[in-house]
Amino acid sequence: MSVTEMFSFIQGFLSADQDVREDLRKVVQILEQAAREILTVLQSVHQLTGFKEIPSKCAKARELFCTVRTQIADLKTKFPVEQYYRFHEHWRFVLQRLTFLAAFVVYLESETLVTREEVAQILDIEVVREKGFHLDVEDYLAGVLIMASELSRLAVNSVTAGDYSRPIRISNFINELDSGFRLLNLKNDPLRKRYDGLKYDVKKIEEVVYDLSIRGLGKEHKCGEDK
């Protein structure tokens, strides 16, 4: 094989690789748009009127996840399944966002932490790599961490809306989450950086709980009307 032949072989490989990436970028873009739509729906829970609408908003979000599922199904067809990690960077971010959204919906519905299996089910993907297009554990954890900062916002806004018990429940939840993350030996990677942000969320929620308890607002709901 001559040098020129060798290089044109490599060139062929590289341009095929670029074509795949181009395709992926397009699908991921659509997926990101879908994720933003879900986020917009869920954002209304922060509004004064939104608290009563939580169940209906969650239902709406779950509906929107349908389109996400079809788009992910489309994404899966764009590359050989055993090369998941070769193209991982393309969908990693959007998968984290979608995990966050799924986790947020599940939290709003049941105040529990979404499991990796549940997220996989909502997105119609796998949990283990061997089975196909899956949710990487680090992406799942990153998504959960995004939710943590959303919950600290929710704690603040639920006080404004007159719900004084929610911040306390959020506080307990976040503390459990924090102690869960403490179990992990994180390397100096993006997930670690994300986790380092968790303490600010914890702090924020603690401040809210402190403000409530020092005024005795957490215990008696009636006090809300005096304000």
Partner: peptide
């Protein structure tokens, strides 16, 4: 109830811990 949910979170994270450690 707190114990229950916390133990489930803790259990889940123990699995993640193992998975991450193996990978690292």
């Amino acid at each position: 109830t707190a114990d229950q949910s916390s133990s489930s979170i803790a259990a889940a994270f123990k699995v993640f811990q193992q998975e991450l450690d193996t990978k690292h």
